[in-house]
Design a protein around this nucleic acid. Structure first.
Length: 186
DNA sequence: CATGGGATTGACT
DNA sequence: GTCAATCCCATGC
């Protein structure tokens, strides 16, 4: 049995832990360089409204994928965290492309490596992750492999991107100095 | 059943 | 810098 990330702890801790881990789907894979934490106690989180059809996954057991459609166009990938009954997830916002770059280019319609996975909607397109993978286990079709690095990356925290509520929380985490981020850290 | 709002991106001025 | 694309879902009548 391969080692797994522990998703049952605090969502902010998991957001930090996931930096440096590798996301794989089929022949494509990339290393996580940017994450954001969302928790049902704050209004930016989808689970803030409580248990609905949409948020059922978020309140379910940890270690599963929450994939939803954003702006009618993009699929965004999250890892459900904290014990069952707590609505929380980590949004995967950017990857350093590692494997299957040609397939990523074909899916994205772009050639520059920096344009392949430098955003939450970009990386799902590059890896071929769609809504059909919502509420499926991480470790199934979509895998998140624990960090294989000698040293943990240095995490830098800042405000989350693209939200209008709870902008005071510094729950965006980036690998310091990474050139693969969706946006630079301020 | 109608409405409104996005955890975004790419094209364009 | 501005702006449209496009659809799922929660909410309210």
């Amino acid at each position: 049995m391969s080692p797994q990330v522990n998703y049952s702890k605090s969502v902010v801790d998991v957001a930090r832990d996931l930096l440096g881990c590798v996301v794989r789907h089929g022949e494509t894979a990339g290393r996580i360089v940017e994450t954001e934490a969302y928790h049902h106690s704050e209004p930016a989180c989808h689970a803030y409204v409580g248990l609905t059809r949409r948020t059922r996954v978020l309140f379910g057991p940890p270690g599963r994928a929450y994939v939803y459609r954003s702006y009618g166009i993009h699929s965004l990938l999250n890892a459900v965290c904290e014990p069952e009954g707590v609505g929380a997830a980590v949004l995967i916002r950017a990857l350093e492309p590692l494997e299957g770059l040609e397939l990523m280019r074909a899916r994205r319609g772009r050639t520059a490596v920096r344009d392949l996975c430098s955003g939450p909607g970009k990386l799902t397109e590059a890896l071929g992750i769609g809504l059909e993978l919502d509420d499926t286990p991480l470790g199934g079709a979509v895998e998140i492999l624990p960090r294989d690095l000698v040293e943990a990356p240095i995490a830098v925290a800042g405000p989350r991107i693209g939200i209008t509520k709870a902008i005071d929380l510094d729950w965006r985490f980036c690998v310091a100095g990474s050139r693969w981020l969706s946006r630079p850290v301020r």
